[in-house]
Design a protein around this nucleic acid. Sequence first.
DNA 1: TTTCTTTTCTACCGGTCGGTATATAATAGA
DNA 2: TCTATTATATACCGACCGGTAGAAAAGAAA
Lengths: 212, 212
Amino acid sequence: MTVGRPREFDVDKALDQALQVFWLKGYEGASLSDLTEAMGITRPSLYAAFGNKEALFRKAVDRYQGWAKAASCRALSATTSREVVEQMLRVAADWHTDPCHPRGCMMMQGTLACGSDAEALREEMVSRCAEGQAAMQTRFEQAKSEGDLPDDADPGALARYVTTVLRGMAVDAAGGASRQDLYKTIDIALRAWPVNGKAQPNRVAKAMTRRA
Amino acid sequence: MTVGRPREFDVDKALDQALQVFWLKGYEGASLSDLTEAMGITRPSLYAAFGNKEALFRKAVDRYQGWAKAASCRALSATTSREVVEQMLRVAADWHTDPCHPRGCMMMQGTLACGSDAEALREEMVSRCAEGQAAMQTRFEQAKSEGDLPDDADPGALARYVTTVLRGMAVDAAGGASRQDLYKTIDIALRAWPVNGKAQPNRVAKAMTRRA
DNA sequence: TTTCTTTTCTACCGGTCGGTATATAATAGA
DNA sequence: TCTATTATATACCGACCGGTAGAAAAGAAA
């Protein structure tokens, strides 16, 4: 029951369009003309609805990260650390080569692709990416305590390694690598994963609920 | 014995300064004002000496790639494929965290960090990066024929894997990762390297000349 | 219908972008 | 010294940047 002239466009759809533009062109590479044309609205409408360009970018990143976090949570709940990593990498490979949207990682394309004046933005994005790495680290610490990883395993270093491969794959995809190429890379990357000689007490029980 | 007024600045030194600016700010993020200030020359001097901004960037990339190719050749001449990869990754880690210049990879920071109008530039950089990957692939094919890699090894996929890790590390470094962090990542990444059960006839002989 | 609120549109702001016209200064050869 | 040639410095170009003022339009409440 709002008063005043009703908005003529769908805010969420417009945000999706803006996300695509940022993904493709980066934060600074996406001009307001690019954005308003893709969103199908005029400049003042954009400012009234989203604040300014930076706020619009943040909202686009929020939406993007929502998807990423959902996929990440699903992967983190896999039974073994190895399965966590494999799912993480495969989902990323599928995502970064999905023909429904631009290739590569939106946050990397959008934020690494920005000059120095948006330094604060970049640092925020770096720390946002670090969240995912930290989540993996805690998951691997849990795996270690469960005996799913050997005693000499370094959860932090392992999480960093996976993050590095993820970032590399995102660049590969942005540069045109095919999904099959990324799959082959994943097969090799996974051979670095430590195998433990200890018993894994919860493994069978967890495996039964894995596909729930 | 050239005629006319002599140039008052050192072209190579100016190009080095331009390289630093592009490295730090990217192709589009580096404005002509940024460049001329860092190079210590005026705008018309820049255009007279280098053509235009894009030509200047290409020359800067040429110089950067010269260093990269030299290091790459050194690594490729190592005895075993594993040593090739280890040296490749370690040199890259050192390079990308060298305090003497901006962090990360100049070509990635410079080119991935550009909008859509410089699409041709980006594609050229992508193909330039592919050269290094191709060189690794031929080196690994040689290793396979020498028995240094198992018969079921896929030289192309292995080269892609190493390239992916290299790209990931470059992003890590640009985001602030320490050299020690990258070293730990390398230790893990190397565990993916295939081990062969076959004899390696030339291994001892080559190892003797390795440190020559 | 009148009033109030909010969105939409056109047109514009100062600033910066990459690039250049023009005039002057500095050298080599005649 | 005079001329040809090249580099320098100032000042400027049209185009585009992110962002906004102000009027018209469309709804809800009175």
